[in-house]
Design a protein around this nucleic acid. Structure first.
Length: 733
RNA sequence: GGGCCCGUGGCGCAGUUGGUAGCGCGUUUCAUUGACAUUGAAAAGGUCAUUGGUUCGAGUCCAAUCGGGCCCACCA
């Protein structure tokens, strides 16, 4: 054996030996069942198919692989099911940025072509993440690999939607949605980030119809053309006498009522609020309570709409200035104050989110959430992650209906159809045969000579009226139908992941390997993903999808800063693997970490763990040729055996209880500071037999294997020369 | 405004059901040609944020305070 362990000489060879052995594959359910084996199932959180791995991925690969290797050695029927996600918005966003560089946009292509282009782009990179996971040592069952847009997964997702619809849990409704005019799609509230911004609070005089005025405070005067009321608090003595009176809305010169609603805070501003139901979530709610009409002043491109009269066509920011100037000229601006307020921004592109009214598909979540709450309350599902279980519970308790429509093509198209003859005025946007993007009502377009077939072929957007009837069907229900152009929220498909991946694999996988034991992910997607999996999986199977939720923390740099491209402190996990070996990176990522807490990882820690790999290697060299060759028990043998048992017991116990960081620390310390520093020295002084030392070392190889699989396997091949360490059995205490 | 998490030697972090504090990196001194300098031995360094309480005993439980971070929320 070489004097030093060089990971480059071993890792690739070991990966292929493992793969060739077939040990990664989970046993067939029927056989495992017959053998009386206990299943251990872990569904991999699917990384974006087109993205290379970052440290967060390396973290989940490591933690999950540790658990999988441990359970495999314990003799469980172990399934680690891998996959990748199409990541609808993320991917289309990146792709459109590429198009923009070529001076093109999504409107230069018909749906099919655009989809194909993105698909090709994703396929070009889709192998990368899988290769990288393998380099980290991921012992997943690659034969069961799934992609969220695989035909069988898509079929499964569509069936789920049909079932939800049959059960009355789907509706199409016009709601204020969080719309990003730059991304051209709506988002669920989970994808909106609230940021504090400096703005101005304008105090504007609204004249009363029968003389006098009422002053309202607003940060968004440009939405005034959409005002449909002024609201005051019912308890507010200053305004009680005005409730029910009419005001003349400046600029538009429309009459709108003064209403009383408890949502108004008396202390803020003037205690009077303009109500703009089409452009503010709270106003929308108020509008619903008071049956106020919806007037859209801003359109989906982020410009002022026709209702804004002279301001129509202007972008929001300049329109705000223009409106204030005009009002000021009319003497209607009482005062302007500097004001810090929360603004919703797009998590993707950081543009300001416009709340806009749009007909979308929603899933009713209340009844689904009740079952998830029950699973948490009863302990059927336990969340590990520094109190984040309470955040989950809070979300489930206050859950809102889930907007699952996205206005993008990269995803699963919603299987809903509209009858053309029944909806002649729905708006269509399509690429015509002359490759121009045209938009208008269906009937207009047909009158202009565009055939239904032409429209259907180039269709990008379809906007049927609010109450339009629709048919849910996987296939076209008749010649006179056009399909909804929205696709499902990516999380709608990944929310079914544990069930969908098992149901579309081997025949008995779902019945045997479900519910899964552990789901592992970063806490940043607790609500957006984990919660959705609970909702949909319980709905589909009646059982909670996982017993344990293990939430790992964010990985920060050595100084505790978030990794970001602008700081330039992003570490590529594969570079570290190249330099120090996969074992070193794995150990550095998990040692002394605890669920839910962020951890800082820098090169010095990885280097320290590379030293561990070398230490193991050299311990092997000693054990194979110890100074004391005596097989007979030495005076320290008894104590050594006792201690060894204790170590096995501790590590096993910690792994059983998902205390992975602690288990890593225990093996590290006991191996280095007890086995190497004490036991080997005892052997040198002839107090410990070589026999005991060797048995102890083999135990340590096994205990270390889940954490540092490569170096331990390399030694096993050198020393034991029988089978693979990967497939050996876990030591008994 | 409501909720959650964190505050342990210079730095980064553990500490499993409460029993007189550990690890990595760093620092100091010494050692080493036979497992490993990617090493070993020894050492310096912490009143476990502060205050009060429960307990025979608290880093570990409770309360309050200060500091840092996060989540949620219709003060426009």
């Amino acid at each position: 054996m070489d004097k030093n362990y060089d990971h480059k000489l071993h890792e690739d060879k070991i990966i292929s030996a493992w793969e060739k052995s077939g040990a990664f594959a989970a046993p067939e359910a029927s056989r495992a069942k017959a053998d009386g084996k206990r299943p251990f199932t872990l569904i991999m959180p699917p990384p974006n198919a087109s993205d290379p791995l970052h440290v967060g991925h390396a973290m989940f690969v490591t933690i999950e692989d540790i658990l999988i290797r441990y359970h495999r050695m314990k003799g469980d029927a172990t399934l680690w099911l891998p996959g990748t996600d199409h990541a609808g918005i993320e991917t289309q966003f990146v792709f459109e940025k590429k198009l923009a560089k070529q001076g093109k946009s999504r409107y230069d292509f018909d749906r099919k072509t655009l989809y194909q282009m993105i698909s090709d782009y994703v396929n070009e990179f889709s192998g990368v993440s899988v290769q990288q996971m393998k380099r980290l040592g991921a012992s997943a069952d690659w034969g069961r690999f799934k992609f969220t847009l695989d035909g069988d997964i898509v079929g499964f997702v569509l069936t789920t939607f049909e079932k939800l619809h049959r059960d009355g849990l789907v509706y199409r409704g016009e709601r204020l949605v969080n719309y990003c005019v730059k991304c051209g799609t709506s988002y669920s509230e989970l994808e909106v980030i609230h940021e504090e911004k400096n703005g101005k609070l304008y105090f504007i005089k609204y004249p009363l119809a029968d003389g006098g005025e009422i002053v309202v405070a607003t940060t968004r005067p440009e939405t005034m053309p959409g005002d449909t009321a002024v609201a005051v608090n019912p308890e507010d003595g200053r305004y009680k006498h005005l409730v029910g009176k009419m005001v003349i809305l400046p600029l538009a010169n429309r009459l709108i009522p003064i209403i009383a609603d408890p949502m108004v805070e008396k202390e803020f501003g003037t205690g009077a609020v303009k109500i703009t139901p089409a452009h503010d979530m709270a106003d929308y709610e108020t509008g619903m309570r008071h049956n106020l009409p919806l007037i859209q002043a801003i359109d989906f491109s982020g410009r002022m709409a026709g209702a804004a009269g002279e301001f129509a066509g202007m972008k929001v920011e300049p329109a705000r200035t223009a409106v204030i100037e005009k009002l000021d000229a009319l003497g209607l601006v009482e005062q302007t104050k500097e004001h810090i307020h929360n603004v919703g921004t797009c998590y993707r592109c950081h543009s300001i989110i416009e709340p806009l009214p749009l007909a979308q598909f929603f899933i009713k979540t209340k009844t689904l959430a009740a079952k998830a709450i029950k699973a948490l309350d009863s302990g059927e599902t336990v969340v590990l992650g520094a109190g984040r279980d309470k955040i989950l519970l809070d979300w489930l308790t206050n859950i809102r209906d889930w907007n699952i429509s996205r206005q993008i093509v990269w995803g699963i198209r919603i299987p809903v159809w509209y009858d053309v003859t029944a909806n002649p005025t729905m708006e269509v946007g399509f690429l015509n045969t002359a490759s121009e993007f045209v938009r208008g009502t269906l009937i207009e377009m047909m009158e202009r000579g565009h055939s239904l077939a032409e429209i259907e072929a180039g269709l990008q957007t379809l906007r049927p009226a609010i109450g339009a009837e629709f048919v849910v069907s996987k296939t076209k229900p008749g010649d006179n139908y056009l399909q909804e152009t929205d696709t499902f929220d990516t999380w709608f498909s990944s929310g079914q992941w544990p069930v969908a991946t098992l149901a579309t694999n081997r025949p008995d996988d779902l019945s045997y390997y479900y519910p899964t034991n552990v789901i592992e992910s970063g806490y940043d997607i607790l609500t957006i993903w984990i919660m959705r999996m609970m909702l949909l999986s319980i709905y589909l199977t009646g059982e909670t999808p996982f017993k344990w939720v293990y939430l790992h923390g964010l990985i920060r740099d050595e100084q505790g800063r978030k990794m970001s491209k602008s700081i330039g402190n992003v570490v590529n996990p594969l570079d570290l693997v190249e330099k120090y070996g996969a074992d070193a990176l794995r150990m550095a990522l998990v040692m002394s970490t605890t669920p839910g807490s962020d951890s800082n990882v820098g090169e010095s820690k990885v280097r320290g763990m590379r030293n561990l790999a070398n230490k193991i290697w050299n311990a092997a060299r000693y054990v194979m040729e110890p100074v004391n060759q005596d097989q007979k028990p030495g005076p320290m043998d008894e104590e050594f055996n006792q201690k060894l048992k204790q170590v096995i017991h501790d590590v096993t116990d910690q792994l059983e209880n998902l205390k992975i960081g602690l288990a890593a620390e225990t093996v590290y310390n006991e191996f280095w500071h007890w086995f190497c520093d004490k036991a080997i020295e005892d052997n040198k002084s002839c107090e410990l037999s070589s026999d005991a030392l060797r048995r102890g070392f083999v135990v340590f190889l096994k205990l270390l294997h889940p954490f540092t699989p490569f170096v331990t396997e390399a030694i096993w091949q050198n020393m034991i020369k029988d089978g693979l360490l990967l497939a050996s059995t876990w030591p008994d205490a």
